[in-house]
């Protein structure tokens, strides 16, 4: 027992239970998904050929990326001024701003989506406001727009937090220096502040995009047949049509897309770091 807690020694035994749990509850299931995508109903790459040869699937595949992309862009636009404001106010105001970002997390994702269903439904609050202003009623629920609105709200915190972390570290004297040398405010922002805050934008954008690709609940409840995303399609294949091979192939495609993005992001981050270390 003495050696159990001693530094350096036996530390592997301490992480072993966690690794075993992951192997049983995640590694083995994922291996099953990959295996079935290549063997069910018959060995080969038939499921992948099927996926990429059907226009319906390709449309969903493309839509998944488009929706995740739109959500990412909207998150950047909304989070950038918000995170900046967080760096420029007093501590109490900052707590309030953080709380507002975290409130969507206080209720379960399903309930949060219920709130959006209530607001976006055809006779819902938003449509009645639009009609009161004298415009035509628009379809929001069961459309891509509705899904994007709901997802952006849920994912905004993942954009605000990394942005805030980076912006807090920016030395504002650099901006002042640029101003004192005659740069207009807009130019000082574009040339100094914006480039310095880009690592935060990039970090947050990657997280939001990856989480957005795998979203399931919001598209399933707020979208409809016309706004299906890859996750929903994979779920239907497995649960409704018992099509393990085709559903598995979709899962693998989604997983590979996620991993490729992560690898790309990791590489980009490392390169930036090396550039910084090189004194550039």
């Amino acid at each position: 027992m003495r050696d159990f807690f001693s530094p350096g020694r036996n530390s592997f035994w301490l992480v072993l239970p966690a690794l075993l749990l992951l192997l049983v509850a995640l590694g083995y299931p994922l291996a099953q998904v990959v295996l079935r995508s290549f063997t069910d109903p018959e060995p080969g790459v038939g499921n992948y050929v099927w996926f990429f040869s059907r226009p319906v699937n390709l449309a969903v595949f493309q839509r998944t990326f488009v929706v995740a992309g739109w959500v990412t862009v909207l998150c950047v636009v909304l989070a950038y001024p918000y995170a900046w404001l967080m760096t420029s106010v007093g501590p109490n105001m900052r707590v309030l701003l953080v709380l507002c970002v975290l409130v969507p997390f206080w209720v379960s994702g399903v309930v949060r989506t219920l709130a959006w269903v209530i607001l976006l439904q055809d006779s819902g609050v938003i449509n009645r406001m639009i009609m009161a202003m004298g415009f035509e009623k628009i379809r929001l629920i069961r459309t891509q727009t509705g899904v994007i609105i709901g997802m952006t709200q849920v994912l905004l915190p993942f954009m605000v937090m990394p942005l805030y972390a980076v912006m807090r570290g920016i030395d504002l004297r650099l901006v002042q220096a640029a101003r004192s040398l005659g740069a207009r405010p807009m130019l000082a922002f574009l040339q100094i502040y914006l480039p310095l805050s880009l690592p935060g934008v990039f970090g947050g954008a990657i997280i939001v995009f990856i989480l957005g690709l795998g979203f399931y609940i919001t598209p399933a409840l707020l979208g409809g047949p016309r706004a299906t995303m890859l996750s929903t399609l994979a779920q239907q294949q497995v649960l409704q049509q018992l099509n393990w091979g085709q559903g598995g192939a979709m899962g693998v495609i989604l997983l590979v897309a996620t991993l490729v993005l992560l690898a790309f992001a990791g590489r980009f981050a490392r390169r930036r770091y090396q550039m910084g270390a090189g004194g550039k």
Partner: peptide, 30 residues
Amino acid sequence: MKARPAGLVRAILITPMIVPGVVMAIGIYA
């Protein structure tokens, strides 16, 4: 742990946050 293996183990331990929910759900169900 030493830095290098610790980084690897930590990366493995946070994979449940990265893997899309539906993909693991299909595997776990199987």
